[in-house]
């Protein structure tokens, strides 16, 4: 199991978060490009668990991620890049599809307008 997990992490070498933010929408922005991946944990479910374990680990829910303003994001995104957008009151966050790739970061937990949301791709 550990060997497989090590091999998996070698295959998807995402460095740890460099600039994490509080779980509420941050007002400040990262000054440099940031990286994030869910921490790999031992996956433990009983034999009756549905489906099959295709990756030997589970990934800790991601709660803290950095955000750009739209203007800052324009330096990193094409106008055509697809995003999943959530708009609640005056708060609005977009999640570019291309940043949600790979098993370590397909799901992001975020509070918006005081309510918890799960963004996944």
């Amino acid at each position: 199991m550990l060997l497989l997990a090590t091999a998996l992490m070698a295959a998807f070498p995402l460095p740890p978060l460099q600039d994490s933010r509080p779980s509420s929408i941050p007002q400040s922005k990262p000054s440099a490009p940031s990286r994030k991946s869910g921490k790999a944990l031992r996956a433990q479910w009983g034999e009756g668990a549905p489906g099959r374990q295709v990756v030997p680990v589970k990934f800790k829910p991601i709660r803290k991620v950095p955000y750009w303003t739209n203007a800052e994001a324009s330096k990193h995104l094409s106008p055509d890049d697809l995003v999943i957008g959530i708009i609640r009151g005056e708060e609005a966050i977009a999640y570019p599809i291309k940043m949600l790739g790979g098993p370590q970061r397909e799901i992001i937990n975020q509070k918006i307008h005081g309510e918890p949301y799960v963004v996944n791709w």
């Binding site: 995402l14 460095p15 929408i25 941050p26 922005k29 990262p30 490009p33 940031s34 990286r35 994030k36 991620v65 950095p66 955000y67 750009w68 303003t69 739209n70 800052e72 994001a73 990193h76 995104l77 995003v83 957008g85 708009i87 005056e90 609005a92 966050i93 977009a94 999640y95 570019p96 940043m99 970061r105 992001i108």
Partner: peptide
């Protein structure tokens, strides 16, 4: 959302 924010992951 002109004042919106965007997930900032670049890797």
């Amino acid at each position: 959302a002109p004042k919106g924010q965007v997930l900032a992951l670049t890797d």
